[in-house]
Amino acid sequence: MIQRLPLGYKQLPLVATVSIFILMYGFGSFRYTGFLSSQVFLNLLIDNSFLIVLAVGMTFVIISGGIDLSVGSVIALTSMVAASLTMNANLSPLIVVPICLLVGSIIGGVQGSLIHFFNLQPFIVTLAGMFLARGLSYVISVETIAIDHPFFDFMANTRIPILGDSFITISVLIALIIVIIAVFIGHSTKFGRNVYAIGGSEQSANLMGLPVGRTKILIYTFSGFCASVGGLIFTFYMRSGYGLHANGMELDTIAAVVIGGTLLTGGAGYVAGSLFGVLILGIIQTIIVYEGTLSSWWTKIAIGVLLLLFIVLQRIIVIRSEKKQNSS
């Protein structure tokens, strides 16, 4: 017989995620010299800060039982809007940044409204949003627009020192602030709990008198907002706008969220888990870089294997808890 874990079943995927992260970090430190340094760890955050932000928005979407395929394209669109408004229209970042955030939020809000009012599948609606946003960025320009502006230089190059020599960037700060806000929203606000309730059973949530429609629209608006924040961070990182930016990143995001322990069928998951999901994706890349001889496509293979592992793990947990319920 298996010993009963002191933890509830719902925390198990999160525990698994964190353990896998620690294991991989330990493996890296053991195998490569220089791996065990605070900067290597902080670089994980620096290189993946946009993915962290995307994953936060996606976590809410998936917990509610939905999916948002538009986030990668919204990054591209945001980068194009930011680039063209800054370079071609010569607008101040004070105007550009709010406009960019608005673009993502509006796309998200419209998607959410369509999903709610017409009772459409989130998959199809956001698939349409994905094509639309990608197409719109090419309407702005088919070429890359390089950004040369003091604000973007500042955002990209400022190093915030922590722990002696190590540093993080402003993007990391933004991403971590968003994670903290999202953890608070998920655990300690009505909106957050409504998201979980909808993911558990939309019909029950409705009969319990919860504002299902408003919550759903807000979820997709928030995901769109996160996508545009991620888009801005991505733009700081690339210092250019381009229609091909972040191609397929919605799938990386979904992978990170699932590896982070969120149930793809909705109803269970944690924002903190998604943070670790992203870090796991990051550490796979780092290990492959350190290995030196491996092709970078091994990243994809590792992600694929991990994803399968997690889906199976989740399924086992669900089956177990069903069995437990039947036998009680």
């Binding site: 709990r193 309730a197 558990g200 059973s201 029950s204 949530a205």
Partner: peptide, 14 residues
């Protein structure tokens, strides 16, 4: 008609 993925407390108070 409750949400089985939430705690007892939440089902009462949500």
């Amino acid at each position: 008609n409750l949400c089985t993925n939430l705690s007892v407390t939440e089902n009462i108070f949500i």
